[in-house]
Each structure stands twice: as structure tokens, then as C-alpha cells.
Design a protein around this nucleic acid. Structure first.
Lengths: 124, 124
DNA sequence: TTCGTATTTTAGTAGTTGCTTAAATAAGCA
DNA sequence: TGCTTATTTAAGCAACTACTAAAATACGAA
């Protein structure tokens, strides 16, 4: 795009440049974090994460039953969460159990606290 | 969908029902929270939120310049953030400045801390 | 009022996402 | 080995998203 269209006359050039540097410095981190937030930013996946958090571990079949969705649809969500290492698997005979990875359990806890206490509508 | 396809034989019916109740009880909160996370879960919007957080306030034009995007594209992101009250506006002559709402500033801080300290790749 | 600056809005479009259906894989058991 | 159970994967498609380009709105100054 062409930048010469609207730089406002009172623009603080120093500020703009500082910000540009900041963004390029942190660029990879933005990608990584936004990707993680996007995963949690889906209604179904957020419920899945919450259920796994509360119950410690669940299999696709349980989740499919709880959410009233096809196993296939749930499985595809689980794969996304697993690819990004928000959750991990543990096989027990034919059943594969999913649980939160330690890092994300810690990270998601505050959100689930808010959810659980139903404070969400006032807090946000 | 039809549920009778795969309820595994050793399924814990009590657990399933407890989870179903939990989900329907918190249903509105899941919608609200996932919607918010989705907004932050976009590369461009996360950068916008971060920049506004660091600089206190910025106008569309500044952000467009910093990110190398058209003003129109940035404006459309800002509208989404504003609709959901993550950010608010303050007019100064022809220029409209955007800043984080207090609630979200508090809520986003821990994420930006991680970003800033570049810990993100180890922490997440 | 007319012009310039700052910004938003609208319409159109290419790319992405989340689901469905059907086929494939994997483990346990007769 | 074949059969059942548990699960994943692949193909297809409808809905959604983020952008572009052009038009519209809003304020200030001459």
C-alpha cells in the first residue's frame, strides 16, 4: 500500500518509528500469541478446554456427547488444540484421553475462574 | 445429530450429566468470553491492542502507518474492538484517538507482559 | 459555502473455518 | 484371521473474515 495518503500533519514521527521498531521486534511473538488466543476464541473449543480443565481428562466420545456434536467435529477441534500443544493425549486401551498441558492449565485458569464465578458479564 | 453412535461402554454417565449441566449453566459466558478471545486472537488486532496499550492512545492514521496497512482496513478492526468495548474513542478536532478501556487494560496486561519480556516461546 | 483533512462505511471478493459424510486407522477380543 | 469399538482423516461445502477500492461522513478553516 502507499503510505503517503494520510500521515496526519501533527503525527509524532518519533512515536511512529518507536512503534514500528517494537512491532518488528516482537513480530514472531504476536503471531504465536494471536494464534493461541484464536484457538481459545472459538465457542466450542473454549468449552472443550473448560471441560477438560474441570474434569482433568476426557475422551472425544465424552465431549461429543456432552456438547451434542458429532465425534468427527470434536476430533477436528481436538487436533487443532493438540497441534498447538494446549492439550495432550494419553491412551488407555482403545480410548484416548485428552488433558490440558501444564503450561496452559496455568494460563487458562484465570479465565475459567471468571467463567465459573459467572462474573464475566460484569468484569469484561 | 444422533447420540447413539458412540457412547463408550465404560462412560461415566454421572460425569457426562454433570458436564452437560455445567455447560448449559455457563452457556452465555462461553459465548461472551470466546467472542472476546477471538477478537484478540487476530494478528493485526493483537498488535493494535498492544500498541494502544504501550502508547496510551493512537489514531487510525498512526496505526495504519505503523502496521503498513490501509486506513480502511485498520478502521474496520478498530470498529470491531470498539463494538465489543475493548477500546474507546476520544475526539480531538478532526483526529479520533483510541485507547484501551480500563477493564481490558487490566485483563490484557499479563499477555503483554509475556510478549514484552519475549518469554512467549518458552512460557506457552 | 467550498475545500482539505481525518475518518468511517459500503460493496465486492479471495481465503479461511467449522461442519457433514464417508472412508481409513488402530487396538482389543473371539 | 475377522469383528467390534474408539477414534482420526479426507473431501466437500456453506458461512464467515479480512482485505481492497470507492463512496460517504464529519469537522475545521478560508
Amino acid at each position: 500500500m502507499d503510505n503517503n495518503s494520510c500521515i496526519r500533519q501533527q503525527a509524532d514521527i518519533k512515536q511512529i518509528n518507536r512503534c514500528k521498531d517494537r512491532v518488528s521486534e516482537l513480530n514472531g511473538s504476536f503471531d504465536y500469541l494471536s494464534n493461541g488466543l484464536k484457538l481459545a476464541g472459538n465457542n466450542v473449543r473454549l468449552k472443550i478446554l473448560f471441560l477438560i480443565y474441570e474434569e482433568k481428562r476426557l475422551c472425544v466420545c465424552d465431549i461429543s456427547d456432552i456438547l451434542g456434536m458429532t465425534i468427527s467435529a470434536v476430533s477436528q477441534h481436538l487436533r487443532k488444540l493438540k497441534d498447538r500443544k494446549l492439550i495432550e493425549t494419553e491412551r488407555e486401551a482403545q480410548t484416548i484421553f485428552y488433558s490440558l498441558t501444564k503450561e496452559y492449565e496455568k494460563m487458562l485458569k484465570p479465565f475459567f475462574k471468571i467463567l465459573d464465578e459467572n462474573k464475566i458479564l460484569e468484569t469484561l
